[in-house]
Design a protein around this nucleic acid. Structure first.
Length: 428
RNA sequence: AGAGGGAUGGCGGAGUGGUCGAUCGCGGCAGUCUUGAAAACUGUUGACUGUAACAGGUCCGGGGGUUCGAAUCCCUCUCCCUCUGCCA
């Protein structure tokens, strides 16, 4: 959530940011925010004054009763009725105005960083760099969903979509044999790498309450994208970002606690309506998938340096896995609601001949921290922190690229770094 | 799931209708002493809002109520603990 004080004092910058994101009626919304904020402050002032008078009166009555002057006390009591009526009315007004303000404020996305390119859609994202050689496959090369069927060894394909449909539904594959083992290998590899890079491993719950959904910005308007357990009012997490970042909700850190670097492996659940044929085939888009997520909490002045470090770290993983990749700087129109700057990492899927997004790393600046009330103390003052996170990495598309890019007539070669984790070096 | 007991500042723990935002202890911070540290002593130490700075306002798990006045009384929700039951 944007800070009201910032909007009030930087109206033009706010408008420019919102335009970059193609927010409709930005000017009208910002004017509404400023107007409601003024109204709220005026009403608050008025209420505070009435309350101050009431408080003084109550003390006066207490003193009179103590001194035994009952008649004067009764007279003073009679004067309070009016104050009470006024304060009640003002209090109701304030609640109403506050709600309206909150309702408008939550509809505003984060303001883009100055380096965010102009643009309306994914077409306009800026390619920051490309790394690695795209493998040239033979004419009979197969996409991963065919490869999975080709190496049918343990009583069915090593990733079984049909079986998943049977027990749950589409988008919930069953990993078997080498399929399950390579998943486990990837998770352990990613966690070990993060530990070596100084992250603290966290195993959070994978269902979260409404407050947590609000804290990181999934709620109120993206509830349709999450699975919901109605009886308990709990949501299945779409990413470990939600529970891990919310560990720091309503927290005031000290400088010694910083920087916070957490890593967590969790399954992730996404309802994601809509599908487009081949683009969502196989492992390309699932309702349940595994992901290792890195989260950092930083002082404002360090957060962009941290973002670059996280980007480098994620790239190092892709390099170790020998995957060709590119890094995109997302444009204003394509960036997530809560982010100020996002890099997407995409790996080259050689048989599908397309780039697959496997990571997204973002700096949210104070947008989440303001919702979370996540602060730290500097020179006796409390200040909002910056939150960042990134996938490091999401498994299914990594696996898809590994399978496709490394296919040979003899079988699918497992990248060297994974072999000790897998216990095998080829799927054949 | 049933019965009972709780929820107070970073932690422990007082406070049961009137200067209580809250005694006290620990911890933290600053100082004295010390070559330095420890110990001891002294002072200081919640958050939000508001103001140029004061002042003022709000917060004792959440919400509502009684009262001139609520941390204290009433209702309700949530969570925690103990015992009984069930259970990976």
């Amino acid at each position: 959530m944007l800070q009201i004080a910032f909007i009030r004092e930087n109206k033009e910058a706010t408008l420019a940011g919102l335009r970059k994101r193609y927010v409709a009626d930005a000017e009208a919304i910002v004017d509404k925010v400023i107007q409601l904020d003024q109204q709220r402050r005026d009403t608050q002032k008025e209420l505070d004054d009435v309350l101050a008078r009431s408080n003084a009166k109550a003390k006066e009555i207490g003193a009179l009763l103590k001194s035994g002057d009952k008649a004067a006390a009764e007279a003073a009591k009679a004067e309070t009725a009016e104050l009470k009526a006024i304060s009640k009315g003002l209090d109701e007004d304030l609640t109403f105005i506050g709600q309206q303000l909150q309702n408008v404020l939550v509809t505003l996305p984060n303001l883009p960083h100055s380096s965010v390119p102009e643009g309306r859609s994914a077409e306009d994202n800026e390619v920051v760099l490309e790394h690695g050689e795209k493998p040239t496959l033979t004419a009979d090369a197969l996409p991963h969903w065919e490869l999975i069927k080709k190496y049918d060894r343990d009583g069915g394909p090593f990733i079984d979509f049909e079986l998943g449909v049977k027990i749950t539904g589409a988008g919930f594959p069953v990993y078997k044999g080498k399929g399950a083992r390579i998943q486990r290998a990837l998770i352990n590899f990613f966690l070990d790498q993060a530990l070596a890079a100084g992250y603290l491993e966290i195993q959070p719950p994978i269902v979260i309450n409404e407050e947590s959904g609000f804290g990181t910005g999934q709620l109120p308007d993206k509830e349709g994208q999450m699975y919901y357990v109605k009886e308990d009012k709990l949501y299945l997490i779409p990413t470990a970002e939600v529970p891990i970042t919310n560990l720091y909700r309503d927290v005031i850190l000290t400088e010694n606690d910083l920087p916070v670097k957490n890593v967590g492996y969790t399954p992730c659940f996404r309802r994601e309506a809509g599908s487009w044929g081949a683009h969502v085939r196989g492992l390309n888009r699932l309702h349940q998938f595994d992901k290792v997520e890195i989260v950092q909490i930083r002082k404002p002045e360090e957060s962009y340096q941290a973002l670059e470090e996280m980007s480098q770290y994620i790239q190092s993983l892709l390099q170790k896995l020998e995957l060709p990749y590119r890094v995109l700087r997302l444009c204003g129109g394509d960036m997530g609601f809560t982010s100020a700057l996002t890099y997407d990492m995409e790996v080259w899927s050689a048989a599908q001949q397309r780039w697959l997004e496997v990571s997204s790393v973002s700096n949210f600046e104070t947008y989440q921290a303001n919702r979370l009330k996540l602060r730290y103390k500097v020179d006796g003052k409390t200040q909002l922190l910056h939150t960042l996170n990134g996938s490091a990495l999401a498994l299914p598309r990594i696996l898809a690229a590994i399978l496709e890019n490394n296919q040979t007539p003899e079988g699918i070669r497992i990248p060297g770094v994974l072999v000790p984790y897998c216990g095998f070096d080829v799927i054949n």
